[in-house]
Simulated scan of single mutants.
Amino acid sequence: MKDTRGILELNKNSWEKAAERFFGRTALPEYGPLAPTENELQLLGNIYEQKVLDIGCGSGHSLQYMGDSGAKELWGIDFTKKQIETAKILLQHQKVDVQLFESPMEQNPGIPDNYFDIIYSIYALGWTVNLKQTLENIYRYLKRGGTFVFSWEHPMHDRIFYNEEVGYILNKSYNIEGPELNEAWHQEVVIYHRKLSTYINTLIETGFTIEKVIDDVALPNDHTPTQPNKWYSTEKAQLIPATFIIKASKK
Rank of each mutant, 00 (worst) to 15 (best):
I138A: 11
G146R: 07
L142T: 10
S151Y: 11
W152F: 13
L131P: 00
Y141R: 03
R140F: 05
H154V: 09
E136C: 01
Y139I: 03
G145T: 08
T147R: 10
V149P: 15
L135N: 05
T134F: 01
E136L: 10
K143M: 10
F150Y: 10
W127P: 01
V129N: 07
L135D: 01
T147K: 08
V129Y: 00
N130W: 05
F148L: 08
H154C: 09
T147H: 03
K143I: 04
Y139P: 08
F150K: 06
K143Y: 05
Q133R: 09
T147D: 01
K143E: 01
W152E: 13
P155M: 07
L131K: 09
N130L: 05
E136P: 00
V149T: 11
M156I: 13
N137T: 05
V149Y: 12
R144T: 07
T128A: 12
V149D: 11
R144P: 02
E153S: 15
N137E: 01
K143R: 11
G145R: 13
M156C: 15
K132C: 00
L142I: 06
R144A: 13
E153N: 15
L135R: 06
M156D: 08
P155E: 06
W152Q: 14
P155I: 09
K132M: 01
G145F: 14
L131C: 09
H154L: 10
W152A: 15
Q133V: 07
F150E: 00
M156R: 15
I138N: 02
E136H: 04
M156W: 15
G146A: 09
L142Q: 04
R144Y: 11
T134V: 03
R140Q: 12
W152V: 11
L131D: 04
R144F: 03
Q133H: 01
H154N: 13
V129K: 03
M156P: 01
S151R: 13
N137P: 08
V129R: 00
L135P: 00
W127K: 15
T128E: 03
K132T: 09
Y141I: 02
L142Y: 06
S151D: 08
G146Q: 07
K132H: 00
V149F: 11
T134S: 12
G146D: 08
G145I: 10
G146V: 04
T128F: 04
V149L: 07
N130F: 00
E136T: 13
T147Y: 07
G145D: 09
L142V: 07
P155A: 14
N137V: 11
M156Y: 15
P155R: 09
S151W: 14
L131F: 04
L131G: 06
N130I: 13
T147P: 07
Q133E: 08
F148K: 10
T128K: 04
W152D: 14
E153Y: 02
